[in-house]
Design a protein around this nucleic acid. Sequence first.
DNA 1: ACCGCTCTTTACAACGTTGTATTCAACGTT
DNA 2: AACGTTGAATACAACGTTGTAAAGAGCGGT
Lengths: 334, 334
Amino acid sequence: MRHRLKDVAERAGVSVKTVSNVVNGYAHVRPDTRARVLEAIELLGYRPNLNARNLRRGRTGVIALAVPELDLPYFAELARHVVAAAARHDWTVLIDQTGGDPTREREVASGIRDHMIDGLVFSPLALTGADLAAVHPTPMVLVGERVDHAGADHVAVDNVAAAHDMTAHLIGTGRRRVAAIGAQHTVEGVTARLRLAGYTAALEAAGLPVDPTLIAPATHWHRADGAAAMRALLESGARPDAVFCFNDTLALGALRALHDAGLRVPDDVAVAGFDDIEDGRYSVPTLSTVAPDKADLAALAVDLLAARIAAPDGAPPGERTVPHTLHVRESTAA
Amino acid sequence: MRHRLKDVAERAGVSVKTVSNVVNGYAHVRPDTRARVLEAIELLGYRPNLNARNLRRGRTGVIALAVPELDLPYFAELARHVVAAAARHDWTVLIDQTGGDPTREREVASGIRDHMIDGLVFSPLALTGADLAAVHPTPMVLVGERVDHAGADHVAVDNVAAAHDMTAHLIGTGRRRVAAIGAQHTVEGVTARLRLAGYTAALEAAGLPVDPTLIAPATHWHRADGAAAMRALLESGARPDAVFCFNDTLALGALRALHDAGLRVPDDVAVAGFDDIEDGRYSVPTLSTVAPDKADLAALAVDLLAARIAAPDGAPPGERTVPHTLHVRESTAA
DNA sequence: ACCGCTCTTTACAACGTTGTATTCAACGTT
DNA sequence: AACGTTGAATACAACGTTGTAAAGAGCGGT
């Protein structure tokens, strides 16, 4: 049922290599020979064994994208853009969920699917710079976190500036007690740390105090965590008049908690998020957010990866920053 | 930098096969030999070439999951469950986005990544039974659509019964003008056709007329399409007092359009969806929905695939139905 | 001392493909 | 008529791994 080059060759009365040449579009094949071979291929339903081809060629035409969780919409949207960008390089993308698990992330970084992929676009959650110092034999581009001294190419939005911009926007609408949701005090929470830094910088620039009771932690960044953190803020009596959530799912959870508490958004409390996921454009109210250019992010990551694959020890690891914009919607109207 | 069995063998002073035996945990290797080999592996940072291994073994340990779009939350959630189910079989999952494009779907079904995967869990959008009659040499399980005479294993929720149940629930809360959003009159829209059938059956069972002006088509099932369809329904003067949307993202879009039109949910119009995506548990109002057992769906699909891989021509293609439940939330409160 | 047994290690071939080098034929040029 | 040039097809080896079969080492029982 499964045929090989050899079967086609016998059927067409030519050598194995000639069939290979036809399959690969080699120029110097006589038209009638080509026709005969194509006929045999059609007849037998021949399909090349990609394993054998990849072994021979040393390349696979597949890159992996490793993300913590696909059902965080941000990562799903990122995946779509990476797939699109990879298609322009004639690559297909193998998508991998790490679950943010350090063990799993280490496996991925050290090349779990060795030789089955040409390269890796990696969005680590738990991994620190030290972990990455361990060999990563597969060409790799990091996305979305500023891991120090990573020794790998890196693409990210300027988290500090972006968080600063959004916080400044909230202050600009007259809010004075701006809370933050999503703080993480572990070594792993690099993104959380950077966004918190931008938040406090904006407060200080506006001459407002940094009130620790207004800063709510969240170990994960799902809707449930945002709702829980918002409830905690309200019950603590901290009385925020605005909340900057470190991502959009947190913000959507916070919206829900505010609704349950009978507070109006934005009249009583303004809410802002980060990532510009599709959900935020249809929620009630619509969600103000920081929008990283995801298409740009994906394209840059894939292009950097292409360069790294072409020349593994070429230029030193690069850091690229992707532009971001503020999308002001109903949830932070003045 | 990249080492092979041969390099390890030379370093350890043994044959290539002995190293292979150590790597594969073969029992009869003398402890000191094993130690020497392991040391050499460690020293050289050897990692097996999976391409070569797969070529030799004829299996890869990878299955593919092909879905239309990852940023439809339903598919992202499904993906998570499939990954989990596959892990129980020691498989990793390669996730593929078809975009619902017929050409791309045909490629996937006919085995685009031939020999790189052991099997395929496929959620087709555009593909019809006739298309599938074409050879699919890779073991395959279809998920989520009742394609007639598919000739492949199949797992799905009972769409007709589920749509019937939800429509009956809406009627049970006293609604009389129940609209439907998501109808598709193309040959491809199998799911849409089945859910529409359940909807009309429930109306008829309740002695209500099937009013064509209450049935709104939607080519795609995103939030934007739901919002547009809802606006069209409102502007047409059809005056529905309930809307059954054929999936949750349509429903979330409809919620938004109703809000924009100044109508209250559920007081003026009740809204129901299908799929039970996470978003619906946090929207304002929370969304009533039909919840297929996604974990069960994924587990069943993967188990069927495992059986099919083990015995390609074993039992005739099976049809499995996955249980569903109604989750009644704020959007359809009586 | 020999046999048969188990444990350990090995040589060899094969998985299906493609790059290199080669052969053979046909052609136009000198 | 001999030549180089080009086109078309081929044989062979190699990519890195593992299954098969077989060889060598060590043992106890006769």
